[in-house]
Computed example of a mutant assay.
Amino acid sequence: MRIEQGQVAVITGAAGGIGRGLAEEGGARGLRLVLTDVDGQRLSALTEQLQGLGVTVVSQVADVSDAAQVDALRDLAVERFGGVDLLFNNAGVLQTGFSWEIGADRWQRLLDINLGGVINGIRSFIPLLLGQQRPAQVVNTASLAGLVCSPMLGPYTVSKQAVVALSETLHYELAVLQAQVSVAVLCPGPVASDIMNSNQAAGAATGPLDVLLDSSIRQGMEPRELAREVFAGIEVGRFWLLPHKNFKPALERRLTSILDETNPVFQMADA
């Protein structure tokens, strides 16, 4: 799909990290933006920043785990801009800990946001995109955790692998319909953000792994750099958006283990 000025992009989880990078890069490319996040203060600040740069943007606080709030976001996009060209189902949180020690409420909350948010975006926006009868693009943010598994990240890994499966299923369904709507799944490694704050907000105790993971994330790829790779992938019609190529050997080891029916062995990511 060709990215052109004046197209409308809806971005969830827009106030920080990947979402903010997508918003800033989209605005620089002349897209009209519909932004949402649960953090109203940061969302408002980003909206004002972009408007100050001449970007056409409207924002609305929303919890993507709530289907009605996602519907309201869709309705806002239609009301203000007449339709949607790009949908970025990006909102997400992260939790750490042994799988059996994470409480049921924390498990459910993460699944509601990371997976439920994507489900709600698809359910709400796909009929609109199909009905427009013009090219449109959906990008679902998963993670390298959607392709490989690590200890202490059970809920996050489960949610992201489900997002990958849902995205691939949606790709096949759109192909069956010969639709002009395309889907891509974004599976990045560390991207500079404060996503680990969501772990603390959920009541998780901070341990050595959390400190190490937080440091790795904060020193990760710059969100704007990632956004440029995402837009480049959209324009060439790529389904798999894998900006961190150094993780491919880990994926290859996992696939080989599956095909050879050998027991998995965890290894740290290749440098």
Results as ranks from 00 to 15, higher is better:
residue 13 G to I: 11
residue 14 A to T: 08
residue 14 A to V: 10
residue 14 A to E: 07
residue 16 G to M: 04
residue 16 G to T: 14
residue 16 G to V: 07
residue 17 G to P: 06
residue 18 I to Y: 08
residue 21 G to V: 11
residue 22 L to C: 10
residue 25 E to M: 10
residue 25 E to A: 14
residue 26 G to N: 01
residue 26 G to R: 03
residue 27 G to Y: 07
residue 28 A to K: 13
residue 29 R to D: 07
residue 29 R to H: 05
residue 29 R to T: 06
residue 30 G to F: 09
residue 33 L to H: 11
residue 34 V to A: 03
residue 34 V to W: 00
residue 38 V to Y: 01
residue 38 V to T: 13
residue 38 V to K: 01
residue 38 V to H: 06
residue 39 D to L: 06
residue 39 D to T: 05
residue 40 G to Y: 09
residue 40 G to P: 10
residue 42 R to F: 07
residue 42 R to K: 12
residue 43 L to T: 04
residue 43 L to Y: 00
residue 43 L to P: 04
residue 44 S to Y: 00
residue 44 S to A: 13
residue 44 S to P: 08
residue 45 A to G: 11
residue 45 A to D: 15
residue 46 L to W: 10
residue 47 T to P: 02
residue 47 T to R: 12
residue 48 E to G: 05
residue 48 E to Q: 13
residue 50 L to H: 03
residue 50 L to Q: 09
residue 51 Q to K: 13
residue 52 G to A: 01
residue 53 L to D: 13
residue 54 G to T: 14
residue 54 G to E: 09
residue 56 T to I: 11
residue 57 V to A: 15
residue 57 V to L: 00
residue 57 V to I: 09
residue 57 V to E: 10
residue 58 V to E: 15
residue 60 Q to R: 14
residue 60 Q to G: 09
residue 61 V to F: 01
residue 61 V to G: 00
residue 62 A to S: 13
residue 62 A to T: 08
residue 62 A to E: 05
residue 63 D to A: 03
residue 63 D to R: 10
residue 64 V to I: 12
residue 66 D to H: 01
residue 67 A to Q: 07
residue 68 A to L: 11
residue 68 A to G: 07
residue 71 D to V: 14
residue 72 A to D: 10
residue 72 A to S: 15
residue 72 A to Q: 12
residue 72 A to H: 01
residue 73 L to D: 07
residue 73 L to E: 08
residue 73 L to Y: 02
residue 75 D to S: 11
residue 75 D to Y: 05
residue 75 D to R: 13
residue 76 L to T: 06
residue 76 L to W: 08
residue 77 A to E: 04
residue 77 A to Y: 08
residue 78 V to N: 06
residue 79 E to T: 14
residue 79 E to K: 12
residue 80 R to I: 13
residue 80 R to C: 11
residue 82 G to K: 06
residue 82 G to R: 06
residue 83 G to L: 09
residue 83 G to P: 09
residue 84 V to L: 04
residue 84 V to F: 08
residue 84 V to T: 09
residue 85 D to M: 02
residue 86 L to T: 09
residue 88 F to A: 08
residue 90 N to H: 02
residue 91 A to C: 05
residue 92 G to R: 02
residue 92 G to S: 04
residue 94 L to I: 14
residue 94 L to K: 07
residue 94 L to R: 02
residue 95 Q to R: 11
residue 95 Q to H: 11
residue 96 T to Y: 12
residue 96 T to S: 14
residue 96 T to G: 15
residue 96 T to H: 02
residue 98 F to M: 12
residue 98 F to V: 13
residue 100 W to E: 15
residue 100 W to G: 02
residue 101 E to I: 06
residue 101 E to H: 07
residue 101 E to A: 07
residue 102 I to E: 00
residue 103 G to M: 03
residue 103 G to Q: 06
residue 104 A to S: 13
residue 104 A to I: 07
residue 105 D to S: 14
residue 105 D to M: 09
residue 105 D to T: 11
residue 106 R to A: 15
residue 108 Q to R: 13
residue 108 Q to D: 12
residue 108 Q to K: 05
residue 109 R to L: 03
residue 109 R to V: 09
residue 109 R to C: 02
residue 110 L to V: 15
residue 110 L to C: 08
residue 110 L to R: 04
residue 111 L to Q: 14
residue 111 L to C: 08
residue 112 D to V: 09
residue 113 I to A: 03
residue 114 N to V: 11
residue 115 L to H: 00
residue 115 L to G: 04
residue 116 G to R: 01
residue 116 G to C: 05
residue 117 G to Q: 02
residue 117 G to S: 00
residue 117 G to L: 02
residue 118 V to D: 10
residue 118 V to E: 08
